[in-house]
Design a protein around this nucleic acid. Structure first.
Lengths: 349, 349
DNA sequence: TGTTTAAGTGCGACCATGACA
DNA sequence: CTGTCATGGTCGCACTTAAAC
């Protein structure tokens, strides 16, 4: 399709009786050597307004070699956490004079690369990836991908990057705290039979083992169940299924520690249906501190990950990279989460 | 900031031993009159790959006068409904070869106009606004704004536009159904004392009066309470406050019809704390069919607004406008919602 | 047929020119 | 005659495309 006809700088110049150079100087008042009379300036502004002339930023970018936009690549723009980040990014980028190009990707390496190239072809100043890979990913493939991206890319910052053997500029939540904060809380409240839902990955399991050891306890495999849906809508379902399985264990757990609020909400239902009152008969904790969690009839204990700080860190690191001072030093920032104790777990056993 | 140095078409041409015209023809294989040998093509592709050359889409757009992107302007990218729409838009636009520029706006006319101009300056082919104005808006100001936007804008499609005296291309949910579907459902189940939460606007109130009249009932002002937060996080709070007030009415309502799921969830808490079991002692309905609603311990009756169909309609109308066949005919599409009956209201009085 | 050349594409930055005090 | 200010012309940006070779 073709663009609708828009007035050009020449038309404005002709109608205002000046040269295009003056129009340009008047309308973007930069450090041009072109001087103009106040009268000429007024005429230009008047004509531009009447004609609805809006300068073409694309050509400006070509000439000045200045980036117009920053790319954001994510599989989950509709996820509350990423939606919040995107909102903050949009505002921060705008304040700095950049547009934000949002692309929705999946985790197929070829598709990913295609998205990446497309964004680069828009001459973006940088890119933010929320997130690059999940724990289910093939390490080898991601490594290749990351390498190719770094080669052709501008500044790129990644979210939730936990592969320390391959350092990328990234902002991550301190995963250990994410797990140990609610776990300690439950242990301190006297719970000993705790099922950890959504913590099946080796890394997460090891953190759990570590904390349990501090309390003189051993970890039991069946009390640590996996399940991190790639489609976040499924998290509720998974939480429900895993909670159902958990309640069948013997001894029956007195607490369910869920890695996410959505899983925890799914677990609520299972417990209530089993006649267990959440926050009295059984403790449940979540993670991510979604807005709804504080509004549940029994409000949910969760781990807040400081989304605003998180997004701000993304912006800061990206801007540092874009300014290309110390371009080779990777910036890795860990956000330390904090526990929000609410009704669902606020009782001693 | 300046863009990082990227290889230019000339460098590729030089290294491949051909002219830039051939590089261009090889890499975007369009209907150029430039022919080239398979051998030359291979060399070009090889060199481009090695150098990491990616064509600059901005110049291509300037030359071809083809739009590169479509703008999306919204105050609430983090809202589940709009997040879902944004996700679908991103995919649809990509399939059609466009990028998506997302800007976060507020409802101040000046700021809005600034955003609008900025997006237009990116030579977008069209724009989607989610949504343009809320019911609290000054009609006069919005009218002026819409007029100015239409003048300088390319194709623009708006969401949730209910001012029929000023027609814009738009996709809207059939507001009357949104209200009458759950209301009829409650009336059919024998409820007579129904408080409508979040339905204080004249338009909404009139629909309620209409439906009640069909059942031989009169509407009572205090059973129809206002409150549509501009910040959607506050919806839970408002739902709670309005539900609290509702329960104090005499006769006490047997049903609460909330315009939104978030308000309904807020109302859940109030009812349970008052010793009323939702779905048995009191009926509650919501609107928007958010994902969490089906996962509540007592699942929530709600009105589904077919978000996918909604987003698809936005794309279809925008594309029709962009192709500029019948540019002057406004396209208005109403999405008819449907009721999803769940546990929270599935009982006869 | 294969390849090069030249003419655009909208705009910005610089420079030479000119008017005027 | 010099200095200041206003203005138009020209070139360049990175690429596409029609036409020439």
């Amino acid at each position: 399709m073709q663009l609708a006809k828009r007035p050009s700088i020449r038309e404005v110049a002709a109608l205002a009786g000046v040269s295009p150079a003056v129009v340009s100087a008047v309308l973007n008042g930069t450090n041009s050597t072109v001087r103009f009379s106040p009268d000429a300036a007024n005429r230009v502004r008047q004509v531009a307004e009447n004609l609805g002339y809006i300068p073409n930023k694309l050509t400006r970018s070509i000439i000045r070699k200045s980036p117009l936009a920053i790319g954001v690549l994510t599989p989950w723009p509709d996820h509350e956490k990423y939606g919040k980040i995107i909102k903050i990014l949009a505002q921060e980028f705008r304040n700095r004079g950049y547009h934000m190009i949002v692309e929705v990707c999946d985790f197929d390496p070829d598709n990913f690369l295609r998205h990446f190239r497309d964004i680069v072809s828009m001459q973006v100043g940088g890119m933010i990836i929320l997130p690059f890979a999940t724990s289910q990913f093939d390490k080898e493939a991601v490594f290749k991908l990351a390498t190719r991206c770094r080669r052709m890319s501008p500044a790129t910052v990644v979210v939730d990057w936990y592969w320390q053997e391959m350092i990328l500029d990234s902002v991550n939540v301190d995963m250990k705290q994410l797990i140990s904060l609610p776990l300690r809380h439950l242990l301190d409240n006297g719970h000993r039979d705790i099922v950890c839902i959504g913590c099946g990955s080796p890394r997460r399991a090891s953190y759990i083992t570590e904390v349990l050891a501090e309390y003189g306890l051993e970890s039991r495999g069946e009390y640590c169940t996996s399940g991190l849906a790639q489609i976040y809508k499924q998290d509720y379902e998974e939480g429900r299924m895993l909670a159902e399985a958990a309640l069948k264990l013997s001894p029956r757990p007195t607490a369910l520690m869920c890695i996410q609020d959505r899983m925890a909400i799914g677990a609520y239902k299972v417990c209530e249906l089993a006649g267990l009152k959440v926050g009295r008969d059984i403790a449940i904790t979540g993670g991510d501190n979604m807005i709804m969690s504080q509004h549940m009839t029994v409000s949910l204990t969760t781990v807040d990950i400081h989304t605003e700080k998180f997004a701000q860190a993304l912006v800061d690191i990206l801007m540092a990279k874009m300014s290309r001072e110390n371009p080779d030093i990777p910036h890795v920032l860990e956000i330390v989460p904090h526990l929000v104790v609410r009704e669902s777990s606020d009782f001693k056993l």
